[in-house]
Design a protein around this nucleic acid. Structure first.
Lengths: 227, 227
DNA sequence: ATAGCGACATACGCTGTGTATGTGAAAGCA
DNA sequence: TGCTTTCACATACACAGCGTATGTCGCTAT
């Protein structure tokens, strides 16, 4: 009985995931507007019937996809932050992680372009924008410790993550992303330092370990994003 | 002959402008994807025939609209910058102008959301993104004078204008935009100050006139945006 | 064992885009 | 001025895609 009961809900969840997976690929490839639901569902041997039953409508599917990708991004950013030696470097590492993640076409099209355009402002997404929560946490810690100027947490977090993601859009659209990426990261770092209470070069001696950038122990694998 | 000859091209330009005007309203109201070309054209007593003849396809019309709005934004930002007492305050004034402009639903939906989603990265727009050019100019001046750290001009300009527009998206989506706006402007100012070579409070004495914010001579009228 | 429910498929209508063709008025030429 | 040509735009058509209403089969519960 429990086995049968599980089998039922199990295959349903399976189908949900199959649809979301197919949608990720289709949305990233063609954009949300151009993606055909018929093609989408056929690719995983289902029909639009399954889709409308599970997600309500096309935008519902987009919301589900966005939530998944956003969650993965937040996890990755958090992970990147964990490896930093200081709180401040944690914020920078998270920002840098955002920038690099947004080079992924899936993240770009789905979360940065189509998401806001079709679902509205990220802060009102059903996924609660886990991404932003991570940054908010880091900012709150930094303000609490007096490292950052006492600005509005929401404002700082929004602008920081927004700036990082915006930087990535620029990098990805540029001709040689590889040469532009470091410039974007550097500019982001400088802008972030605007929130510091004291000059960053002084900061170096006080807030960070004087040792050179320590090689970070094997960046543990996280949910896909590069599968 | 010249009168007749003018009459011909004249009405065509007239129709182009009527279509662009109707599109601005429709795109701002429903979003690019949901806007119907039939409705659009009917509102100015034309048909889709005129539209496809003038703009090629739906995206062509969007591009034309974006170019127009972007141009108006650039003019406004430039105007806002002219009133500043110092080069540095000029940059801040332009950024603040971007933030305030982006509160306009037309700017938001068309230039910030649908534009990037359907036309790709702003830097590759046919309009050349006049908006960004203004910021680049200000940044270049500031670096030239040694006020800003010698960062990549393109990077700084992209992140600054991107941050400003992103801040506006947040403000507009918030519950009480009026209380959030100053927070956004303040956070933007701080981040911009990250590009300064010296501390901003020191800057106050050196780079700006000590006099209080001088009242600016009647902000000359610029192309619509608020009609 | 059977009635009920639920997950998904099938079938239909409608809206909207893009294109191919038609038309009337301005423009060129004598 | 009278004719032809051109061109801006309208009309007509083909087709794809979304959403919904209805059908069906298998699981679940009593």
């Amino acid at each position: 009985m429990p086995l049968a009961a599980k089998r039922r809900a199990e295959t349903m969840e399976e189908n949900r995931l199959k649809l979301i997976g197919a949608a990720r690929k289709a949305f990233a490839a063609s954009g949300f507007a151009a993606a055909s639901m018929d093609d989408l569902t056929a690719q995983v041997d289902l029909t639009r019937g399954a889709l409308y039953h599970n997600f309500g409508d096309k935008k519902g599917l987009l919301a589900a996809v966005v939530a998944q990708v956003d969650g993965e991004m937040a996890a990755r950013a958090h992970q990147a932050g964990m490896t930093a030696a200081t709180l401040w470097e944690r914020l920078l590492a998270e920002g840098e992680a955002y920038i690099k993640m947004a080079l992924d076409p899936e993240v770009q099209r789905i979360v940065l372009l189509d998401g806001p355009a079709f679902l509205g402002d990220p802060s009102k997404w059903p996924s609660q924008n886990a991404c932003l929560e991570v940054t908010k946490q880091a900012v709150a810690d930094l303000i609490g410790k007096g490292i950052m100027k006492p600005v509005d947490i929401e404002a700082a977090a929004r602008l920081l993550s927004g700036t990082a993601l915006n930087a990535a859009l620029w990098v990805a659209a540029s001709e040689e992303p590889h040469t532009v990426l470091p410039k974007a990261i550097e500019a982001f770092r400088l802008m972030a330092e605007g929130f510091l209470r004291i000059e960053p070069d002084i900061t170096q001696g006080i807030l960070t370990y004087p040792s050179p950038r320590l090689p970070v122990p094997g960046a543990a694998k996280l949910p896909s994003l590069e599968r």
